[in-house]
Structures are given as structure tokens and as C-alpha cells.
Design a protein around this nucleic acid. Structure first.
Lengths: 118, 118
DNA sequence: GGCTTTGTCAACCAGTTGATTGAGTACGTC
DNA sequence: GACGTACTCAATCAACTGGTTGACAAAGCC
């Protein structure tokens, strides 16, 4: 699991991490801020943030004792591109489906389908 | 990890499974077809397909001994929506950054807006 | 210098994942 | 009915995950 896309998908496969990302779109936050709504230890949240950071989804700076977490929106592009590319391909294929089916039926069955009036 | 979005992201976190999805955008395929390029057992591929199926990314039918695998493109929409929603939010935030910072400073100050009429 | 706040690192543990092999099922063909 | 093909199920295993607690580090405050 070395490639970034795998890391990004894996990072977002966890609902808690997705929620963190969602909240970070509103504003940067500290580890404590982020941990507050969840019923887990601060260490667990710290681990989640490490996963997000290694996926390139967030970055962290230093500000006294605090480590503000910042969303890196560019990574979304990576995912979007992957998804849109294959979605488009799939849709193109389906848009050709009728034509394919039609030609198959012509070749396949010279007679009508079941239940159709003859 | 019961929600579908988690399952979809988890399913696509594996490069082999992403590759399978990519190939399925071109045409439906049997388990054997899909397994051919990879250096793993057929059973392993069968497991990958089960993961993709449970995420709703593919469906399988029966055709004699074969189990053709078909890509379900609708699930891409689920992901797209999630991603685009937060990407848009994040982008909006950055474009409004100055204003946000200003309002944050205002909100910080002790004066409240509700029921302050003395 | 000592205390508090904020967060990380390390060790551990149970549960999940991705792979394997071996056995078994479903279907068509001979 | 025996055989081959296409595939799935079950048991097993090492590696990874997500959580825990305890100890530590880094910065500001007294």
C-alpha cells in the first residue's frame, strides 16, 4: 500500500476520519478540538491524524503547544480524477449498450421474446 | 465499517481492486479473465470480488459455470458527491479566507449578538 | 525551576485483511 | 455417470488496524 491513491482511499474508509475531514473544511483545528466530539482517547485521534497526514489529506504546523491541523484540498483532485475517469468510461459504455443489445438481439433471436404477442 | 461509503473507499484502497474496476469499465469479465494478469490464486481474486460486490461496486450473475462480473457505475456517484461537497467547501473557505479570519476575530470578542439588549 | 497544557511515542491487544492450500459445488460435455 | 471447467467455501497464517494505557516531550505560566 505504497501509492498515494491507496493511502487516500484507505484514510477515508474510516467514518471518524471522514468526519474529521468534513470538520476541517470549515476551519483548521487542534488535535484537542478534533478529539472532542469522539469517545476515544487523544492518542487514538492523534493516530487518525497521522493516517490523514501520510495520505496527504492534512498538514500540521506548530503554534506553541498546539499542532493545528489544516486540510490539503488538492488531494481531493487526485481522487476526483480517478473516479471521474472511470465513471465517464463506464457511462460511455452504457450509452452504447442499447446499440449493442439491439445488434445482439438481431443476431441472436430472429423470433420475438417470451410473452410478446406473435 | 457498516456504511456503504466506508465499504466503497475501503474496497478502492487496494490497487489490485482498483485495477479490476478499471478493466471492468471496458467490459464485463469472468473471474478467470480478471485473475489472469495477476500473480495470485483464483481464490484471492474471488475474495477481492466479494469485497467489491459488498461495496456495491460490482454485481455478478450466472452464465453456465461462469460468474460474469459487471461494474455498477452508480456507486461512483456516491463517492463523487462526498468528495465534491467537501472540496467545494474547502475551496470556498480558501477564497473567503480573509473574511473568515476577520469574522473569527469578531466572534472571539466578549460581546454576543443574541439578547444583548440591556 | 516546577506545574500545566497539548500532544506524541511505545508497547500491547483484539479484530480484520490479503494471501495461501485443500476440499467441495455447479454446470456442460463425453 | 465420469470428467473437466469455473468458481466458492473453510481453515490457516502473517501483517496491518484501531483501540487502549503509561511514559515522555515541548511550550507557556507561576
Amino acid at each position: 500500500m505504497t501509492d498515494q491513491l491507496s493511502k487516500v482511499f484507505a484514510a477515508l474508509a474510516d467514518p471518524t476520519r471522514r468526519d474529521m475531514v468534513a470538520r476541517l473544511t470549515v476551519a483548521d483545528a487542534t488535535v484537542g478540538d478534533l478529539a472532542e466530539p469522539y469517545d476515544v482517547s487523544l492518542q487514538a485521534v492523534s493516530k487518525h491524524l497521522k493516517v490523514l497526514e501520510e495520505a496527504g489529506l492534512v498538514s500540521r504546523s506548530r503554534e506553541a503547544q498546539r499542532r493545528p491541523v489544516h486540510l490539503e484540498a488538492e488531494v481531493f483532485d487526485l481522487m476526483s480524477k480517478w473516479i471521474e475517469r472511470y465513471r465517464r468510461q463506464a457511462e460511455e459504455r452504457y450509452s452504447r449498450l442499447d446499440a449493442v443489445l439491439a445488434s445482439l438481439q438481431e443476431a441472436d433471436s430472429p423470433t420475438a421474446e417470451e410473452g410478446t404477442a406473435s
